[in-house]
Amino acid sequence: MWALGSLAAWLAAIFGHAALRRAAPGIGSLAGFLLVGGVAGLVLALLLLREWSFAMETWAGLSAYAFGCELYIFLFSSIGTSLSAANLYRLRRGARSAEELEERLAGKAMVDGRLQRMVSSRVLDLSDAGYRLTPRGATLLRAYRAGRRFFRERSEPPAPLGRLFSAEMLRWWIVGFAFLGVNLALLYVFVDLLGMPVLIATLIAAEAGLLVRFVVNDRWVFRQSQITLQRLWQYHLAMAGSFAVWWITTNVVVFFGGHYMIATIVGMACSILMSIVTNFFWIWTRSKS
């Protein structure tokens, strides 16, 4: 019932917004939706609180409604400004040449549209001398730049740390997570399907998993063209070292009074660090790619 209420409120917000845009075209698209969506959301919240108080169902209904509203705002605001959406929209009425497509989307029309919108949202001032940035526009520009620094500017870490921020590191983690599942599957095959004793099965599964993981690391993660025996024994040594680090760290933390679960997490972190160091700076010192 709460899920249906959430859906009904979302549909009411969409159709209420459509009606408001036609009844009062002067109101902005976003402002209009925030108004109608806010009212619908408030009604939904009151109904859910009355029925479910602060139970999980109330939060679930509200989060689904909020996500639906954000998605709709994203859709209508992006199709209004997107060149791709404008092209698809125009092509509904039949095929066109590139010149015809550009006719309404020409530079002047685009700049005109943006300038008008920025003036109406008080980001720009228009006077006899021309357009000028308002304080609100300057704030917006600073926010844009902060966003660009965070999302778009990739810093170049110094070598050899550069390898820690590389695609091969990402591939290395993917393989690490994938092999959690592979090792479980191998153990299942040896114990349940082949009927081996657990003591033997764990040893064989560990070695089989290690060999396959070495091949995947060598060929896919570090893009080597030729598997070598030297790297294979280095990898065995590195894995044994990582196990030793995990075992020692875990027991040391327990010895000093730490909970064994916390201890094993600390041990895993140290063991992963050890694997990164040995894999990236000892076994595969230089990636082929």
Binding site: R21, F33, F76, Y89, L105
Partner: peptide
């Protein structure tokens, strides 16, 4: 796109 544009009265093409 046309449905969303119609519902929201979004100005298309800029």
């Amino acid at each position: 796109i046309a449905v969303i544009a119609r519902l929201s009265a979004a100005p298309m093409g800029r």
